[in-house]
Amino acid sequence: MRSIAFVVLSGLLLLVLTGCWDKAELTEFGYVQAVAIDRNASGKFELTTLFYVPSAGSETQKPTRKGITIKTQGDTIFDALRDISSQFGRKAKWDHMRIILLGEQLLRKQSAGEVLDFFSRDHEPRATVLMLVAEGQAGEYLTVKPFIEYTIGQQLRKMEKIAAKYSANTSRVPLFDLAIQLKSETGIATVPFAQLEKAAKTVTLAGVAVLKEGKVGFILTPAETQSLLMLTNQYEEGILEFPCPGKPDSPTDKESFEVFSLDTSVNPVIQHNEAAVDVRIKIKGSVGELRCSALMSREEGEQFEERIAKQVERDLQKTIARLQKEKTDALGIGNRIFRTNPALWKRWKPAWPDHFAAIRFHVAVEVRVLNTGMNIGTPFGKKGG
């Protein structure tokens, strides 16, 4: 009798456990690839949301399109997002989003922290979604046709990752890292900067936007960005160009060096209520192109390495001078002082921009050439090459 009662009770429990009380069909959702945020003429937030369109039929069949954009507006980000379903007929899903674009014009007037507050609180967006500051209106960028990826959102994400790793012309900043920068003691953040060529309908990532108190302060060029990544020890791989001896202004008489590894140490030194920073950088790589140099002896190799080191030092000093002129500590020196000497930072923090502008930087660069490539150390086609 007990066995029969146990079987009946177990069957009833199984019926309860297999219920689909919270089921949702895939056709109820639209999967977001990217979102661009601007302000329109009426002062409302304007969102351009890019959705992924699943392909119908076989995998070998080329789809007509893989992404569509929906424009909405509202007094708040949440308000604009809720209006998507009234146009799209599906609920937006944010957990597969690739990238967030913030319009430069928007961030000139409003803090990035205020704009991104929804994405930091909602449970769907991931902290690893990448960030971009777009020149002009960000919404225009999501109408560009991708070259090889399925959607422009995926292309922009790949561009940010690959450009930061291999060319060092821009950086790579996930949402979580941006939050850390904005909440740091200095409050300075750097975000990759995108530009749109409207005639050719192409997007280029070059340089970074420097945010002060969450707003765009100024833009660093690709060359300045390379130096910034070196100074902050975020430089992975890239190409260094330097002029031939005696031809500093020639656009054609240049040589190049491929960087394999770069290691930076930055040490602030406080003496007599003044700060100095010692920067030491070690670079390893191989010869990229030779036009005017010969590397046939140890002495010639050392002179070649010295030329590269001096050029890098000059470039670093130019970038440091730009940051000091702007009174913007994008190098995180204030954060380092806060960690090592909180009492001193407490005194310096109110006037830190002026303190940073007065810092003396000592920069030393060491370059080591690992190989000259397939040819002996002379320009291709010349005798001995």
Rank of each mutant, 00 (worst) to 15 (best):
K165M: 12
I100H: 01
K93M: 10
T143P: 00
T49N: 01
R82C: 09
V53D: 05
A127L: 10
F78S: 14
Q154A: 12
A41N: 09
S58T: 12
S55W: 02
K161A: 00
F118Y: 15
S167Q: 11
Q87T: 02
E114V: 11
W94Y: 06
I70S: 11
Q137W: 01
L132Q: 04
I152N: 11
Q137G: 02
T48E: 04
E59K: 14
P146T: 03
S85W: 02
I77P: 02
L106I: 03
T72D: 07
S111L: 01
G43Q: 10
G139Y: 03
H123P: 11
T72I: 09
A127S: 13
L47C: 01
T143K: 15
L130N: 09
M159W: 02
M131S: 04
M97G: 07
V133M: 07
S86R: 14
E140Y: 15
L156A: 08
P63Y: 09
W94F: 10
G67M: 13
L81G: 15
L130Q: 14
G57I: 05
T128H: 07
T170L: 08
E140F: 15
P63I: 10
L142P: 00
I77M: 10
A92R: 03
R108K: 08
A138D: 13
G43H: 05
S42R: 04
T64P: 15
E135Q: 12
K93H: 10
F119D: 09
E135W: 06
R65W: 04
V32M: 07
Q154I: 06
G67D: 13
P146H: 11
V173C: 05
K165R: 13
G139C: 03
N169Y: 12
S58D: 13
L156R: 03
D79W: 06
R39N: 05
I84W: 02
L156W: 01
T151R: 05
I100M: 10
V129T: 13
R126S: 12
Q61R: 10
T128L: 10
G136K: 14
G136F: 07
G103Y: 01
F147V: 11
K109I: 02
V144C: 05
G57H: 10
T48V: 06
T72V: 04
M131T: 03
A56H: 01
S120M: 14
A80L: 01
R157A: 06
D79E: 09
R126N: 07
A56Y: 00
F29W: 07
E28W: 11
R65C: 03
R65Q: 15
I100Q: 03
V129N: 06
Y141S: 00
Y52F: 05
Q33Y: 00
L116G: 08
P174K: 15
G113W: 13
P125R: 11
I84C: 02
Y31Q: 02
A92W: 00
K93V: 06
I162C: 00
K161L: 06
M159E: 08
V144E: 06
V129C: 01
P174L: 15
M159N: 03
G89C: 02
G57L: 11
P125F: 14
L130S: 14
K165T: 10
I84V: 14
Q87K: 08
A164H: 08
F118W: 07
D83P: 09
S55M: 03
D83W: 09
L156I: 04
P174C: 15
K71I: 10
G74K: 09
F78D: 13
D38C: 00
T143I: 07
E46A: 03
L142S: 12
P125T: 13
Y141T: 06
A163M: 01
